[in-house]
């Protein structure tokens, strides 16, 4: 996994609540057996005017001019603003894979669905939770100022606005550590293999029916 330390990027405002993972990456693209290549189909049903299927040449498809991410001023955006309960619904990790493949490094919202939130950290994406008033300010500033960028520093847990204002955010220490260092979670867990083996020995005595092979 790519580490996230500091990132400065263009901000795109997706002013909707309850954006679900079916919207982030529609089901037909889940048939891929790869982890990559989902970016062109991020928000497919909102982004294009036709019906998308795997294998299409996305560069030739008609874009929906009303969808915010299609506006010229937001091209190249890497920080996504959203509203409440972003990423609700299915557990599909294809959702963060699509965001990552598109180039999104951070999503900022007042709340996230649990599974999506967790999946982001496994894929080098930083989900940041901010209060409603701050979110409103960020939406206003982004929409009012073309080329609006934010500077996110994970170590300091700060977001710096172009005018120099600084917003602090919380992140759980273990998640921060893994993301900051781009660590392999499985590798970390396997460092505790002795504890796992000891647990299995004890549990197999308490619940032997789970250990019949």
């Amino acid at each position: 996994m790519e580490a996230f330390t500091q990132h400065t990027g263009l901000v795109v405002p997706l002013d909707r609540s309850n954006v679900d993972t079916d919207a982030i990456i529609p089901k037909q693209f889940l048939k891929s057996i790869k982890r990559t290549g989902f970016g062109p189909n991020l928000f497919d049903e909102w982004r294009y005017l036709d019906h998308g299927e795997p294998g299409m040449d996305n560069s030739k498809r008609p874009l929906n001019p009303d969808f915010v991410m299609n506006q010229e001023r937001y091209q190249g955006a890497s920080i996504l603003l959203a509203r409440e309960n972003f990423g609700c619904g299915s557990s599909r990790e294809h959702a963060p894979w699509a965001l990552e493949d598109y180039g999104i490094k951070a999503v900022i919202a007042p709340s996230f669905a649990d599974i999506f939130f967790n999946n982001c950290f496994k894929n080098g994406i930083l989900p940041i939770i901010l209060d409603h008033a701050t979110m409103d300010t960020l939406f206003e500033q982004t929409e009012a100022n073309e080329g609006f960028k934010l500077d996110i520093d994970l170590d300091k847990q700060t977001i710096t606005m172009p005018n120099g204002d600084v917003i602090s955010f919380d992140v759980e220490p273990d998640r921060k550590h893994s993301l900051y260092n781009g660590l392999d979670d499985i590798g970390i867990t396997l460092q505790q293999e002795d504890a796992i083996t000891a647990y299995e020995a004890e549990r197999s005595k308490r619940a032997p029916w789970l250990f019949n092979s």
Binding site: S91, R92, E93, N119, I196
Partner: peptide
């Protein structure tokens, strides 16, 4: 019982464990 993403599917296959926060 709970849903997980693909990274955690792999994590469970490899380690039979998950790193979690209590809800």
């Amino acid at each position: 019982a709970f849903g997980v993403g693909t990274s955690e599917v792999e994590h469970v296959l490899a380690t039979q464990c998950l790193r979690q926060k209590k809800m």
